[in-house]
Design a protein around this nucleic acid. Structure first.
Lengths: 140, 140
DNA sequence: ATCACTGCAAAGGGTTTGCAAGTTC
DNA sequence: GAACTTGCAAACCCTTTGCAGTGAT
């Protein structure tokens, strides 16, 4: 299963060269779950101070071209990036802005939307907002 | 109901000055349903050739600040803008890129997502993709 | 040895800002 | 007449591109 691949294998399977910079970029995205360009840049520079923003962008684009990475657009936030994994939707905490994945049953969701829209739903992008995020709740 | 207000009244209710440029901007967005900045700029310039892009942006931001306008972010498309109306989700045709509104029952959708996520869903942004759009289908 | 990647600097595209002139209320 | 809006130009992101040098396979 793709989700359990090491970053290195993910890259090799796509025929991408495994450079230390690229490997760390993938690892940091994996660790973060969802991350924006600047935060990623900051983290990578702790290890490779000479790394340039252009390299971040080139890698993000290369990884998206290979289908390993996905862009996540949420209102009022910078674009985030996440590794492509099996079906999930995004939950965003209105208090702290934390984005987390919620695993779903793809067919259940498709058929729900087919029912209410009358359309043959091939794909969907769903973000739900609420205030009961794990992080905030645990701080109460 | 807000949805049936004239553009002029929408602006007055928010205490915004009703200039000819602004009025036309609101009308064009209303007509288009969903429109990107450049298309809007093109349309407005047919009537006001001297209108500047900065004015488009200032108005978009002012209208969003007043809660009259909403930004619609869809992968692979320029940002679109739509007047804020009652609950709907977006259907995007994978063939032609047409974006259309699908009216929904807000409570039904909330409770569906509460059920599958275990979260107290306060809001959501949903885009569904398919190939059976009205425009494409009618051309078959 | 080849092809791809990195890093730098410059260019590009989209959006915002400051200010003077004009408009709405 | 006060407050706001427009239009222009300049400034500001954020992102991409070109190219020379470096590194992976």
């Amino acid at each position: 299963m793709q989700s359990y691949q090491t970053p290195e294998n993910l890259l090799r399977e796509k025929g991408m060269k495994v450079t230390p910079q690229r490997l760390l970029i993938v690892r940091e995205i994996q660790d973060a779950g969802h991350i924006d360009v600047d935060s990623l840049y900051g983290k990578i520079r702790e290890v490779f101070p000479s790394l340039s923003l252009a390299t971040i962008y080139k890698n993000i684009n290369a990884l998206m071209d290979e289908g390993l990475l996905r862009e996540v657009k949420i209102d009022g936030m910078k674009n985030l990036y996440e590794l492509v994994t099996k079906d999930h939707i995004h939950f965003v905490c209105s208090k702290c802005g934390e984005v987390s994945d919620i695993g779903i049953d793809e067919l259940e969701v498709s058929s729900f939307f087919r029912k209410i829209s009358g359309k043959n739903v091939k794909d969907y992008v769903i973000t739900i907002f609420g205030e009961d995020c794990d992080k905030c709740s645990s701080v109460n």
